[in-house]
Design a protein around this nucleic acid. Sequence first.
DNA 1: CAACTGACTCACT
DNA 2: TAGTGAGCCAGTT
Length: 116
Amino acid sequence: MPVSDFNSKLSNFKKRVYEIVSKIPKGYVASYSQIAEVIGSKNYARAVGNALHVNPFPREEVPCHRVVKSNGEVGGYAYGSYVKTNMLIEEGVEIINGKINLEKNLININLLKNRG
DNA sequence: CAACTGACTCACT
DNA sequence: TAGTGAGCCAGTT
């Protein structure tokens, strides 16, 4: 079942979040506020985090580990931030002293808006 | 329906 | 640079 198909049950808000997160390419990260902004307002950042926390999809469909905090920290993860950090590193994301190199790995927000 | 919670962010100190 | 407080929102109690 494709990500774009998981309509039912989930609130409209969550669907939007999962849809956008599924567009983040390997090796890149997006901040919670970016996802929020694409949906409508940066203020949704906290709600976005909650939506990902209860995300029912496997990471192949909704790579929620690629969503990080706006200050470069990895942020939380349902199975532990340690796991999240390692997955990012394995994907080629540059992380030094627990801080992600956003200049290099942060995705352009326009790429999240388009394509879908 | 009011109060709380949490994978957040920003301004200020 | 690090720590604190207030604001914000969807969901859950």
